[in-house]
Design a protein around this nucleic acid. Structure first.
Lengths: 249, 249
DNA sequence: CGTCAGATTGATATTCATCAAGATCGGTGG
DNA sequence: CCACCGATCTTGATGAATATCAATCTGACG
């Protein structure tokens, strides 16, 4: 099972990258993370990584691709409440909440690792500081959600979209996936509409308006930000909420 | 300082009520909570309980009144991203995030207790299960935020408002503050607009539409839900996300 | 009685969702 | 190689939803 072995290395590195953006991780802690047992799974666009109303006994770590939390409404519409990138735990909160109140779906092809809760508890108890870092991860998620509420509620479509792109670029860059503010984002405009809480047509036109500013390039599935600072200024983007500062937690 | 002694009792009870809705709290744990030292403070509408960009070394527990997380945009508009009720810790996440990326303001007259982080760490270490319950509290906050994103992004104003009222009623009821789905909510329509992400006029008209359904009564600052199930049905409200089930966490 | 904050109302302009129709593109099978 | 197909993107037209502006009304209170 060399493939599984590779996956394991990838998973450990992805998780460590995430944590090390925010705090120092000791050698002993790194070894504990490396000792996690996990299983791996590949998903096609639209498939559930975690299903609503399930009671997971393992938590899911994204290794590649983009996934999103999906809330479905009775009128058939849907809202994506979070986008997860490689290195993110998508349902660590289920460790405490027990019952999933939403699904996590693949927005693109995706690859993920599942870690048994018992394993997470084991290494948390061996290193309480790791436990704090897992908590941190759910709390950063919350901070991002607050930023999204403000975006949907009060920002103009152009600024909302710009804000999202700044956020994704910074998060991806932190784990080494967006060098020079350029990254791959193979998402449909229709999916984007469910992220931004707009209609498909509105997304299309907003995207054109954003292109016309000349601040970004979005060809095919590749986004390139030409002038990050100007885009951040335009979109009123302040990265504080991402908590990408490395400090003792 | 009998007044402070009373406040202390109120704070301990409020916090325990919150926790006991979600999990069993042992006698030893209750005593640990009761051993917390804290200071108390009263706020008038609009005052900050916790300020943006501060680095709190204590966390703030609401004892009475309503408070909200406030995000201010550069264009002068504002979005409230959460409403906190008595028994809620409003900035427990600052224990890990360190730097506040938003303020917490009093939406009404409010009374709050501040607990030093060192104290929270002390009782967390004495009882790891309490630590999990603190984590739980931040994670429930996140679940509520997800529901809000879906509401702002995809629900019609009438349903959004109905959903909010259902949520508040259930949360208040859980801590004994909304008997028979009736509670006091002394908030301004303008504040409500910043909660719902609508304009003031829109709020006013939506409120009238909701009154016309006959499902609720909102006179002065008192909301009475006449038919909770019907309101929940109308608003597509599913309380799962509030995690008000008592189970081992 | 005057004042003020908040609630309500009507009129208007703007934004946005929706509907419907192409255009584009990549892949597939003949 | 080409015709075709489905998915996605793009565009224009239309009406509904919503923000904004500007009064007016109401009730609490000095």
């Amino acid at each position: 099972m060399n493939e599984t072995r590779d996956d394991h290395v990838i998973a450990v590195e992805a998780l460590l990258r995430y944590l090390q953006c925010r705090d120092r991780v000791s050698t002993a802690e790194r070894e504990l993370v490396a000792s996690l047992t996990m299983r791996f799974k590949t998903f096609r666009r639209g498939e559930d990584l975690v299903s609503e109303n399930s009671r997971p006994n393992e938590s899911c770590l994204v290794l590649s691709g983009f996934t999103g939390r999906e809330v479905l409404l009775k009128d058939g519409s849907r809202q994506i409440t979070a986008i997860h990138i490689p290195g993110d735990f998508v349902d660590l909160h289920a460790l405490l909440l027990k019952l999933m109140d939403h699904s996590v779906v693949a927005l693109t092809e995706a690859h993920a690792a599942y870690v048994p809760h018992a394993e997470l508890v084991r290494i948390s108890e061996a290193a309480p500081h790791l436990s704090r870092l897992f908590w941190l991860s759910t709390v950063v998620d919350g901070a991002i959600q607050r930023a999204w509420i403000a975006c949907i509620g009060r920002r103009k479509p152009l600024h909302h979209l710009g804000h999202l792109i700044c956020e994704l670029s910074m998060r991806l860059n932190a784990v080494g996936l967006a060098p020079r503010h350029s990254f791959d984002f193979p998402i449909t405009q229709s999916q984007l509409a469910d992220v931004l809480g707009m209609s498909l047509v509105q997304v299309n036109r907003t995207l054109q308006a954003l292109r016309r500013t000349g601040l970004i390039d979005w060809k095919g599935s590749t986004i390139t930000i030409h002038d990050f600072d100007a885009l951040a200024e335009l979109s009123d983007f302040d990265p504080t909420y991402l908590n990408l500062m490395n400090e003792p937690r």
